Amino acid sequence: MLEKRTSMPRIKQTAMAVAVTLASCAGALGAFAVPALADLGGASGPGVRAAAIVNANGFVVRSKGVTGVRKIATGQYCVRLDADINAATTVPVATTQWTGSPWDSSIFVRPDGNIVCGDSRDIFVGTGSAAGARDTGFHVIIP
Score class of each variant (00 low, 15 high):
V34K: 15
R70F: 08
I53R: 14
M16E: 13
R121P: 01
M16V: 12
A31S: 12
T74Y: 00
S129G: 08
A15V: 08
R62M: 08
V69E: 02
I53Y: 09
I85G: 07
T14L: 14
T95N: 07
L81Q: 06
I107C: 02
T136W: 00
V18A: 13
A17G: 04
T127M: 00
A17R: 09
A50M: 07
T95Y: 05
V66T: 02
Q97G: 11
T74Q: 11
A38G: 04
A23K: 04
D39G: 10
G45C: 14
Y77M: 02
P102K: 01
G113I: 02
W98D: 12
A17Y: 01
N55K: 14
R70W: 06
D39Q: 14
G118Y: 07
T95A: 14
V116I: 13
V61E: 07
I72T: 15
V34E: 15
V18D: 03
L29D: 06
P92A: 05
N57S: 06
A130W: 12
P111C: 11
V48Y: 13
A23G: 13
V125M: 01
I85M: 05
G42N: 14
F138D: 00
V48L: 13
G42T: 12
S24Q: 07
G128N: 00
D112C: 07
G132L: 02
A19R: 05
A19C: 10
R70M: 06
S24T: 14
D82V: 05
A43W: 08
A26E: 09
V79W: 03
S63L: 04
G58R: 01
V20H: 01
S129I: 01
R62T: 12
S105C: 01
A50P: 06
F138S: 01
T127N: 00
L37G: 13
V66N: 03
C117V: 10
R121Q: 11
D82Q: 03
N55V: 00
T99E: 09
A94C: 04
V34Q: 13
F32N: 09
T21S: 14
L22V: 15
T127I: 01
C117E: 11
K64D: 09
D122C: 06
T90C: 12
L37P: 09
A88M: 10
I123M: 05
Q97K: 09
A73Q: 11
T74E: 09
F59P: 00
V66R: 04
L40Q: 14
V93W: 04
W103S: 11
V116E: 13
A131F: 03
S129C: 03
Q76G: 06
V54H: 02
T95I: 09
W98E: 13
R80Y: 10
D84R: 12
G132A: 02
G100R: 00
I85V: 15
A88S: 13
G41I: 08
M16W: 08
N55D: 11
T99M: 04
D119G: 08
A52E: 08
S101H: 00
Q76W: 07
A19H: 04
V93M: 08
V93E: 13
L37W: 06
A87N: 09
I123T: 08
P35Q: 11
A38R: 11
A15W: 07
A52L: 07
G65A: 05
A73W: 09
A94K: 03
Y77L: 03
R62E: 14
R110H: 06
V34P: 04
D39K: 12
L22M: 12
T95E: 10
L29W: 06
A23D: 04
I85L: 07
A88T: 06
T136S: 02
C78K: 07
S129H: 02
D84E: 15
V54C: 05
P46W: 10
